[in-house]
Design a protein around this nucleic acid. Structure first.
Lengths: 128, 128
DNA sequence: TGCATTTTTGACAATGATTGTCGTCTTAGT
DNA sequence: ACTAAGACGACAATCATTGTCAAAAATGCA
């Protein structure tokens, strides 16, 4: 069903770059980083590759106010605390929230429950 | 601090329109509806008004994939339980979650905290 | 290995919601 | 009314993302 993806220099470059990063980056940032690293990849290709990887479940996607950020997928379910200034991301998990969301949804008769939760703020480094 | 908003024909028109609606509409849709209703308002003004109302807590904002939707705010701060099948939305509030988010963020030294939370599921009507 | 076939690439244009601009018009207050 | 602070709106600008499509690369097969 799913057309197998071909192995290309560009896709390897993107995957390799993300493997060496720990926080979220935008498609544009990734494009710049690749260019600086000598492994130049077209912007359109960066976008397509990131989307394909995200669809395949290999990437974590974080949608901020005005752009999408990507990062290699970490193992467990968790949420993010994101700094508006520098985009620094802290992972937080909240069993309390998970349970609350499931319970509330169940009470309304909903099934196949999923949820999104992001917390935004300004970190100490981005303040006076 | 907060500059008091002035009463204008345009703001009344937007508020009146929203008062007669129960679901979410985009800024562009609202702009069209106003035009059809004879109460024409500039698009820029619609955007500014909606944002001002949202900032003032009079509107509920729902950010979809590619645009922002607005609706009159029924109660206070709350979140949404959205059906994947029919897009029906139920309002839910969770003081627990609010407090949890604020506390977690504060523990990490973050200020000016905000958060987004949406719960997705399949409602009874959209199942066999 | 050479060739056909299909996918991918990337430079560039296009999209489209939202925001900025700025001269003109309104409102609120005296 | 008169004035100063806001507000309006037509239009231009922004900007992440998506579309286009001919050229390039990858896969499969003989």
């Amino acid at each position: 069903m799913s057309t197998p993806l071909r192995a290309t220099r560009q896709r390897h470059a993107v995957a390799a770059l993300l493997a060496g990063l720990d926080d979220f980056r935008s498609a544009q940032q990734i494009h710049h980083l690749l260019r600086e690293a000598g492994e130049s990849v077209g912007l359109s290709t960066v976008y397509r590759t990131l989307q394909a990887m995200a669809d395949a479940g290999d990437l974590d996607v974080l949608k901020t106010e005005d752009e999408s950020l990507y990062r290699k997928c970490s193992t467990s379910h968790h949420h993010h605390l994101v700094c508006r200034g520098c985009n620094r991301t802290e992972e937080v998990d909240g069993p309390t929230v998970e349970r609350w969301a499931d319970r509330v949804a169940a009470e309304h008769g909903f099934t196949e429950i999923s949820h999104t939760l992001e917390i935004f703020g300004t970190c100490t480094g981005c303040r006076g």
